[in-house]
């Protein structure tokens, strides 16, 4: 009996840990809204942004070296595109018990220290990271509002040089947002990058 139970538990764990890589959005899909806690304690949903034309949703965290390297670039994206209707919404998906440097308190401290001009939300149940199909940090999902729905316009990396933004000759997210603003076709809709695996609960 005990053996059966542990086997069932094991199966459940295997299924949960396999889920993030199977599901998730593809470019062109309609993205769901959410209600997540921001570092200031308030609850944030995309529907709160009545004037927005879309969102630069970034799954990121405090601890991943890539997330750190891209932090200033994420701040710059918000500065550049918030006024044009495409604000940054940052979501931290790691389980804080597996990655203590990503706890809610650590998120608050990091946001204050770096002066984040955008919401930095905790995806405590990891439901949103799973629904979107976030696999690593940082991982961008650019959403465009189309007749009230949020259509995924780009998934991937911010640019093609994590070490030095000045040497990046492909600025994927900027090119994609610029295209949306100009009602042009997004030139590159999907890219991959090396990143830190999301610290899923129960793994």
């Amino acid at each position: 009996m005990k053996k059966t139970i542990s086997l069932l538990v094991l199966l459940a764990i295997v299924q949960v840990s396999a889920a993030p890589f199977d599901g998730g959005y593809e470019v062109g899909d309609i993205a769901r809204d959410f209600q997540l806690k921001n570092v200031d304690g308030a609850s944030v949903s995309l529907s709160d942004y009545k004037e927005a034309k879309g969102f630069i949703v970034v799954f990121t965290c405090n601890t991943c070296p890539y997330a750190k390297l891209y932090e200033q670039r994420i701040i710059a994206l918000d500065k550049k595109y918030k006024g044009a209707g495409y604000p940054v919404i940052a979501i931290q998906p790691n389980d804080g018990s597996l990655s203590p440097g990503d706890s809610f308190e650590a998120m608050q401290a990091n946001s204050n220290k770096k002066g984040f001009s955008f919401p930095y939300l905790l995806d405590e149940t990891q439901e949103i990271a799973r629904a979107y199909g976030a696999a690593r940090t940082p991982h961008v999902f650019l959403l465009n509002k189309e007749s009230g729905k949020l259509r995924v316009a780009y998934i991937g990396a911010i640019d093609n040089n994590h070490q030095d933004s000045n040497k990046a000759d492909k600025k994927y997210v900027e090119d994609a947002v610029d295209a949306l603003i100009a009602s042009r076709k997004v030139p590159v809709t999907f890219t991959k990058a090396i990143g830190c695996t999301i610290k899923w609960s129960g793994t």
Binding site: A135, A157, K170, K192, A193, I194, G195, T197
Partner: peptide, 15 residues
Amino acid sequence: YNSFIDKVSPSWSGA
């Protein structure tokens, strides 16, 4: 990174 991840495996997200 985007230039070689698929060459290693198309099923690799990069994590």
